[in-house]
Write a protein that binds this DNA or RNA. Sequence first.
DNA 1: AGCAATTTTGTAATCATTACAATATTATTA
DNA 2: TAATAATATTGTAATGATTACAAAATTGCT
Lengths: 145, 145
Amino acid sequence: MNAEVKNEMNIDVKNIGDFLKSHGIRPSYPRVKIYEYLIRHKNHPTVDMIYNSLADVIPSLSKTTVYNTLNMFVDKNVAIVLEMNDSEARYDADVSLHGHFRCVKCGSIYDFNLDSSDFRPRGLDNFLVSEVQVTCKGICAGCRT
Amino acid sequence: MNAEVKNEMNIDVKNIGDFLKSHGIRPSYPRVKIYEYLIRHKNHPTVDMIYNSLADVIPSLSKTTVYNTLNMFVDKNVAIVLEMNDSEARYDADVSLHGHFRCVKCGSIYDFNLDSSDFRPRGLDNFLVSEVQVTCKGICAGCRT
DNA sequence: AGCAATTTTGTAATCATTACAATATTATTA
DNA sequence: TAATAATATTGTAATGATTACAAAATTGCT
């Protein structure tokens, strides 16, 4: 185990290609870079944020590729789209159960922990629940002062 | 208490006007009809669903009015927009804490109960949380058979 | 009734996302 | 390695939900 090439999700960034392959995604350069962006920037980026940031390192990059790639990531379950009524979709490579809080003043989005044992949807017997998202709105600590 | 003019939210539909007034909304005819639609149809309607249904009873109705009115309802906290990545926004007059499940096969949206005691966001100390929504995705019991 | 404020309406603009076809890249086979 | 097939990327155009805006209609108030 080599800590310095691990991120907090325990994914070796040097081996993003293998990770993508193991999820049925051919690791082209744009795909690896976009996935790398997602796990390095935990700020729930929009397509534009990703595109603007990667346009330097991949000069030929098209915004359509970013859209296509993210849709594929969601399809292959290596990323989620936040269930959040923002004007632009926001993406997250952390597919584990956790909540999101959006501050209506500053627009920041915060992650928060959520124990799965906390949370029991009642009355969905015989339903196959593949994804759960908890979304909160309000004013963050910083904006309240 | 007159049960036949109460709906399941315990709001006298004859007094929607008073209810809206008490929330700072002047009860114009379109507003009353749109709110009445929301409490009578619990199927999380889109703007188009509301517009198409009310166009008969209010021939002059404009889709812009439906948008304006729903935005005002959300602003005045008598309705919510579901935090759900659908192509069209969906509205709900039930502003109490409850969850939504969307079946990815048939598109139906189900409500489910959620005990507030079940659910404790961790690490949002000093945050003012004004709204919580829980959104699930998967396959409903009917579509699994 | 008359005037001011508010609401509604219709059309046009906006803007995120997708459709699509052409080009480029990668994998496969001989 | 060269030829060919499959897949990925790109740019532009189309789509479609939502908003902007100004004119017309309605409402509330004196």
